[in-house]
Amino acid sequence: MGTIQRLGQWAIGTSERLGRGYLFLMAILAGIPGSLFRFSLVIQQIYSVGVLSVLLILISGLFVGMVLGLQGYNTLVDFGAEESLGVMVSLSLVRELGPVVSALLFAGRAGSALTAEIGLMKSTEQLSGMEMMAVDPIRRVITPRFLAGFISLPFLAAIFSAVGILGGYLVGYGLLGVDDGAFWTQMQTKTDWYDDILNGVIKSIVFGFVVTWIALFEGHDAIPTSEGVGRATTRTVVHSAFAILGLDFVLTALMFGDV
């Protein structure tokens, strides 16, 4: 009896949280037109969410690209196809690794910070204070952060892919001696602007939406104690990772499933 009760409790709790998350998202979306008129708030947030993540993205992108170059070369050289290294590096970065890895890094670097920030604002009753002064905290605090995350991630993913391809080129051309011209021309013939690059951008837009939503909701829904904020931050990273990887499969199946 106790097990069934706990199961029921869990189900009700989860549905409640999902419902709250949905209502929260609706409130954010309703606040978007308002924050477009106060865009300086959004710019401030793009700075702390996007600009401060650039270094992390640059370094990780470079190393991921370089590792792809090394590993790809070792496999391709067995088939005498090391000229295809460019294609391999560019397609794997543009289609998968760029959007996914940058979204995971973004969840760890910016998402957790957002959750902690909002959670602390809640536990120190800054949000209730705003409400007392008839300032809507959703519009003043949450929506600019949401827009900032949503705008930043596609740029970060594009930077990640570009730097990664340069890293693969550095290793392939500089270290392993793959032919310079073949590297780029094969890449250009096999990488499609619409099918590969734009689909990658769409992926990163979806990830930006979901990760920022999860981060803000966890912060806003956190139990207002130090322990609660800590848990909420952990949940942000874990749930974001699940959401990114799960959605990545769904999006890949939709975009590239019939190729």
């Binding site: 740029f155 970060l156 930077i159 892919s161 570009a162 250009q188 499609d192 590969d196 690059i197």
Partner: peptide, 30 residues
Amino acid sequence: KKSTEVTVGLFVLLGMGALFFLAMKVSNLS
């Protein structure tokens, strides 16, 4: 705030530049 805006502008430019690089150098858009 002004310096923030400048860095954000640079960030957006960097992102656009990366997309442009992907379009022109990596894909067959050219």
